[in-house]
Amino acid sequence: MQVTLLTIMEVILMPIVAFIIGLFMVLMMRKLAARLQRRVGPPLFQPLFDIVKLYGKQTQISHGMIHDIGIIMAVGGYVAAEALLPVPGMDGIAAKGGLITLAYLTMVPSLGLALGVGQCANPNGSIGISRALTSMLAYDIPFIIVIFGVAYQFSSTNLVDIIATQQAGGFSTWGISEMPVLAVAGLFAMHASLGKQPFEIYIAPAEIATGPMVEMGGKFLGGLFVMQSFQLYTASVLYVSLFLGGGENWITFLLKSFGVLAIPVVIAYLFPRYRTDDLVRLVWKWPVMLALIGIAFVMN
């Protein structure tokens, strides 16, 4: 019983931590972008301001119940996913889910969002979703190969085990030093999954008016901002857990997660975007090839 209670506490705490870290990740992303463009960039609490403002809108419009539920699922799915992602000192229910579950659980928010957007009856939104799902199909293939490689390498799908194994021998047993090729492919896939340039065809503001977000105002958009911070957090922490030995303590954990996230973000703002079919072609070619080579090394 004690354990259950503790687990529940962790499950409650982990999303809160994730949200806070996620907000800073959003900030970091925007700051980096600004720096790259030789701007000052937003102030420290800008992500929070945005969210509070959006929730504080006086009039809000909704296109129906599914529109609402979409946002709920988008946020809720990530809240749940965070409980599966171990952080230093807290494992949550990572042992009861594991890597595959996490990979699939992170689809729940996207699909919830997709449902909500569909309900809006806005063609831009639908086009956006169609593109988003297409790019999910594109980047999930290398991603899933990477997951297989890691799970096979550590012969476990339990993230706690995977992290423990990596930490056991220091840097030399980290995923990145044992499977460098897979790590590169994983980074690529992670970048694509973030939906930043050059893989943001489904947002394409000038073309389809931010796609899925086209009808989202007020707290709907606020929910999506929350989701974004969770998304950045999940992606980077998952990568850290798979390849960088997770967090020995909070300092290294934060360093690693922010560091990992910085890479795609820096790359992102140097690029325009790919067309959908180009995106698919690119992602199915390079990261998949890398991942397969990586797998070949792992399987030996």
Binding site: R30, A34, R39, P43, F49, E215
Partner: peptide, 21 residues
Amino acid sequence: TSRFDMERLGIQPMVTPRQAD
């Protein structure tokens, strides 16, 4: 953009009326 940088004031461009203030 970089010369005057509205973002430091928290001002961002948006593309649809639903999102904008």
